[in-house]
């Protein structure tokens, strides 16, 4: 039964990683930038959700939507202010800027809320409950996290595959100049990509808070790094790759914890990443091209 217990834990953790990894991979797909501030967008989302629930007394879902909207705006501002001016400079310059944005978000948040952790309010009603099937404990909050994540992924898939904006996003990520010749406004399309990716990170931040209770201004670092690993793992720039990679990382992490390697679970994740990248340098679903990380 232990295996099934880790499976359900891995599924909920993987769902959160998946939402974060999607943002990484979409941004990379469209402007070939590793947005190292992405984990901090998650942190801002977690705090917006916390503020909405405690000070503004919103319910969980209203707080989730508020955090997503706030992060979407934040993502667009970050892109316009920090990354757009560097679009034609070297990739290393953009990467360093991303690290700068990351530190900026962390310490501005620390200025406002302090360095001490804050606690998400206690879950109430259905979400506080749990049940047991054959000895496997399933918390309702885990089901909520998995459900919301899957719903957001379906919505994302619909946007990317079926809508005008989604087609523009795919066109720009394949060939920006050809997209311009179709009449696509490349700058706006990049902004929309940041908005969607950041909104997903905001949702992940709120769910992180609901699941782990404690949040702080530096909390974005580890989930951000792991989701980045997940995106590379699956093949960066590819949406299905990000999902596959995120669930793989979630499972590896929970299994490592389950077999008594709690202290080393992060190390195990990175070890598996290294092994995979030695065998498949472009990630699980990636094709080998000279342009990859």
């Amino acid at each position: 039964m232990e295996v099934f217990q880790q499976l359900i834990n891995g599924l909920s953790l993987g769902s959160i990683y998946a939402l974060i990894a999607l943002g990484y991979t979409m941004v990379y797909g469209i402007i070939q930038l590793i947005n190292f501030a992405h984990g901090d967008v998650l942190m801002v989302g977690a705090f917006v959700g916390w503020f909405s629930m405690t000070t503004l007394h919103m319910n969980v879902f209203a707080a989730l939507v508020t955090a997503m909207a706030a992060c979407a705006m934040l993502g667009v501002i970050i892109e316009r202010v920090a990354y757009k001016p560097l679009r034609n400079s070297t990739r290393i310059a953009a990467l360093i800027t991303a690290i700068g944005v990351s530190l900026f978000l962390e310490y501005v948040m620390m200025y406002f809320v302090g360095a001490n952790p804050k606690a998400y309010p206690d879950l109430t009603g259905f979400m506080a409950g749990s049940f047991t099937i054959h000895g496997v404990i399933i918390k309702n909050i885990q089901l909520v996290i998995i459900g919301i994540s899957v719903l957001l992924m379906i919505i994302l898939q619909f946007i990317v595959q079926r809508t005008r904006v989604g087609k523009a996003m795919r066109a720009v990520s394949q060939d920006a100049d050809a997209a311009r010749l179709m009449g696509i406004n490349v700058d706006n399309t990049i902004s929309i990509t940041f908005a969607i990716g950041s909104a997903l990170a905001g949702a992940a931040g709120v769910m992180w808070g609901l699941y782990y209770i404690s949040i702080n201004p530096l909390m974005g670092l580890m989930p951000g790094l792991k989701a980045f690993v997940a995106a590379v793992f699956g093949g960066i720039g590819l949406i299905p790759g990000a999902l596959l990679g995120a669930y793989a990382v979630g499972f590896i992490e929970t299994i490592a914890k389950g077999v008594g390697l709690s202290t080393y679970s992060d190390a195990v994740v990175f070890l598996v990443l290294i092994l995979i990248l030695i065998i498949k340098p472009a990630g699980l679903l990636g094709k080998n091209t000279k342009e990859k990380v």
Partner: peptide, 22 residues
């Protein structure tokens, strides 16, 4: 464009729809 620059991982139909994007 030179070298055609079609969107290789999109369908023929999607390529044509993108032509009418405006």
């Amino acid at each position: 464009p030179e070298g055609r620059r079609i969107f290789t991982s999109m369908t023929v139909m999607e390529n044509l729809e993108l032509g009418a994007y405006r």
